[in-house]
């Protein structure tokens, strides 16, 4: 059987201004296109899950993690609106899926990133189950 690898699609949002200019019907159509797109991928077993991100939240930075910035981030032009976790053959397939993102015409960009699997033998969780195993790796 063909091996499949995980890829993350990261959706960088359209500017709030673009959304505001859309009519209710356009918004609904866009949403329906997204849902149909996702459903199609799910039916083909190509997407594991996808989630929107809440606009709120925090950014932690500073060498000791002392700088904490509160959201929301949705107003930012390049804010991350959500992600899909794909399971596909290769980067080319993940890319062609990303090219079908319904919000592209409105200015959204989609980042396609292979999910690194440091230790393939450890399987889906991607993490050693215990410290002992981690040392063994």
């Amino acid at each position: 059987m063909e091996t499949k690898s995980p890829y993350l699609l990261i959706f960088r949002d359209v500017s709030a201004q673009t959304y505001k200019g859309m009519s209710a019907e356009q918004r609904q159509r866009l949403m329906e296109q997204w849902n149909a797109w996702y459903d199609g991928l799910a039916a083909e077993g190509k997407v594991e899950h996808g989630h929107p991100l809440e606009p709120g939240g925090r950014v932690v930075s500073g060498t000791r993690g002392e700088r904490i910035t509160d959201g929301p981030f949705a107003e930012a032009t390049e804010g991350i609106g959500g992600y899909f976790l794909l399971t596909v053959s290769d980067l080319a397939e993940a890319t062609s899926i990303a090219q079908r993102c319904p919000s592209l015409p409105y200015g959204m960009s989609v980042e396609v990133r292979p999910v690194a699997t440091a230790c393939p033998t450890l399987g889906v969780k991607g993490r050693p189950a215990s410290k002992a195993e981690a040392v063994a790796v």
Binding site: Y19, R27, G50, G81, G82
Partner: peptide, 16 residues
Amino acid sequence: QSALLQAMRTWSIGGV
């Protein structure tokens, strides 16, 4: 307006 926008963005990826 904001709530409807948020609905569209969230439901697009997360479903209705």
